[in-house]
Design a protein around this nucleic acid. Sequence first.
DNA 1: ACATCTTTTGACAGCTACTCTCATTTCATG
DNA 2: CATGAAATGAGAGTAGCTGTCAAAAGATGT
Lengths: 212, 212
Amino acid sequence: MNPMTAAQRTTPADRPQLGLRERKKIKTREAIRAATYGLIKEQGYDATTIDQIAERAEVSPSTVFRYFPTKEDIVLTDEYDALIMEELSARPADEPWPESIRYVMHRALALGAKDDIEVSRLRSRLTVEVPAVRSRMMESMSVTGRMLCQAIGERTGLDPESVEVRVYAMSLVGGLMEASLYWAERGHTDDFPELIDRTLDVLQHGLPQRNS
Amino acid sequence: MNPMTAAQRTTPADRPQLGLRERKKIKTREAIRAATYGLIKEQGYDATTIDQIAERAEVSPSTVFRYFPTKEDIVLTDEYDALIMEELSARPADEPWPESIRYVMHRALALGAKDDIEVSRLRSRLTVEVPAVRSRMMESMSVTGRMLCQAIGERTGLDPESVEVRVYAMSLVGGLMEASLYWAERGHTDDFPELIDRTLDVLQHGLPQRNS
DNA sequence: ACATCTTTTGACAGCTACTCTCATTTCATG
DNA sequence: CATGAAATGAGAGTAGCTGTCAAAAGATGT
């Protein structure tokens, strides 16, 4: 969803070719994020104001809003969307859908594990605890759903705008989101990859035992 | 989600047995809603302020907030949750799940059709167009999901707190929501009951043609 | 009908997320 | 180094939302 994600992820590689301006932008962006995470850890989400964030990041409040449209956006980055789509389009065209999804999810998990685990968990905790954050998360979910529709369209030849594809994509995304909520709710104690597997099983074959 | 729904729906029946106080409360509630819908139709959602709503409803702004926690809540009522759950628990215990869901959805549709169609469409249009409203809608979706988990637990004997059940419920609710978004996006031109059928088909059997 | 108690309301103050404008500073370019 | 473009900061303003407190209105008992 956020275009700057790529820039962050590839920081080490292309820093030299970026102008001073671009480098500064990335820096302030990260400064704002760091300040936010720090303050939230100390005082909680609601108690943390934009002014405090601005002060700690050593920028003006105006600048904070220039970088992030809302407070929730500071904590939420879906670097995953682009990542998933990329991996997905790289799968062989004849691979069955559920297979592709399963593979890609595990792959995204593996890559995500490299990120700062502290931050990642704080983020998912906030997703559970702060309504506004969860809300925004769900918004981004529907964006992910749309992208999935495209991918599904390309692979299956079905109309990406049809109810069928859209419903399928949404139920997939919704299910996966619920799984990660479940994981966060229980304090990240479960094995997440396994959780994802069980989730995909349900989405593919319905509930276990006596039904559908 | 909102407890007062039942009161509204059954207004004709039990008005006599309600005290003057209760009757007034219902009245102001409806006045606030009516004012809101009117103003939104005239000026759009964002341009409509709480003060304007209060003025037209002839109450103070404080009172508006006493009746509705947020502005979005004024336009969104999910009278459907309770309704669906009720119908659902009334189904025979040995009926297969997908059958029950299908029946109940159609039933809810039939009952919903009795409501003011103007308002109902305005509401779903806002759900598509105004991010904040859609957001709130999604929030309520997860509440619905939780209730579904309960129902599923009772019917199947599965643990309502298990990932499986929760994922299943969420994907169901998410899919249905997407269907109604789809419907609203295309100007309510499609046949909604048929759309629901196609949706449930996808959720049950996956995408048509060559896949899972 | 009156007094008392409880609930509901309105007025007001206050906080904060967020927007917009404009002058100033900072980097890029020839 | 001069000129142009982009980023920043300062400030004012809007609106959603919260909390408090005193006044008004309905409920209740005698």
